[in-house]
């Protein structure tokens, strides 16, 4: 049924298959070679180098960006470390100031305390001295009164009191 290719273009080679119509082969081969050469020239001169350069450029950009990001990260880490260091320093400084102030205050306090202690001690000593004086004065007075009383009692009893004996007796009693 299909043995009647009566279209205009089919040369009378008898074959029903256009693929086997050898009269068209030179034409196809010629135009194929032209096409291939044209495509090859376009590709190898223009398209492929361009795409290759674009890809290389993109690769470069990506690599650069990654490197830049790496650097920025490193810088951030450095900044963080510096910040931490500064914080530590400031803390140490503050601690030092606190310690210094404390020591200063302590020293002043100590001096004042000593001064106060010394004053108190002096006053105490003075008071003790005064008390001792008063005590001594009182003892003397008691002694004198006791001697006089003893002499009077002895005289009243009709005895003749030896002053030295009385004094010795009173002294002995006072100690006891």
């Amino acid at each position: 049924m299909a043995d009647t290719p009566v279209e205009a273009g089919a040369e009378a080679s008898g074959a029903g298959m256009p693929q086997l119509d050898f009269s068209t082969f030179p034409n196809q081969i010629f135009w194929l070679l032209v096409t291939l050469v044209v495509i090859y020239l376009i590709l190898s001169r223009v398209a492929l180098p361009r795409i290759a350069s674009v890809l290389a450029e993109r690769q470069g950009t990506i690599t650069n960006d990654i490197a830049a990001a790496e650097e920025l990260k490193m810088r951030a880490q450095e900044a963080e470390a510096a910040y931490d260091q500064a914080l530590l320093d400031a803390r140490a400084e503050a601690a030092k100031i606190v310690a210094d102030t404390k020591a200063d205050i302590q020293a002043k306090l100590d001096v004042e305390m000593q001064k106060a202690d010394a004053e108190i001690a002096a006053q105490t000593a003075e008071s003790e001295k005064a008390i001792a004086e008063i005590q001594a004065g009182a003892t003397e007075a008691v002694k004198a009164v006791a001697k006089d009383t003893a002499k009077e009692i002895v005289a009243a009893l009709g005895g003749k009191a030896d002053a030295r004996t009385i004094t010795a007796a009173i002294n002995a009693r006072m100690k006891g």
Partner: peptide, 12 residues
Amino acid sequence: FSFLVALLLMFA
């Protein structure tokens, strides 16, 4: 190939 043989027998 067999398809080609068929075509050749049909048309050529």
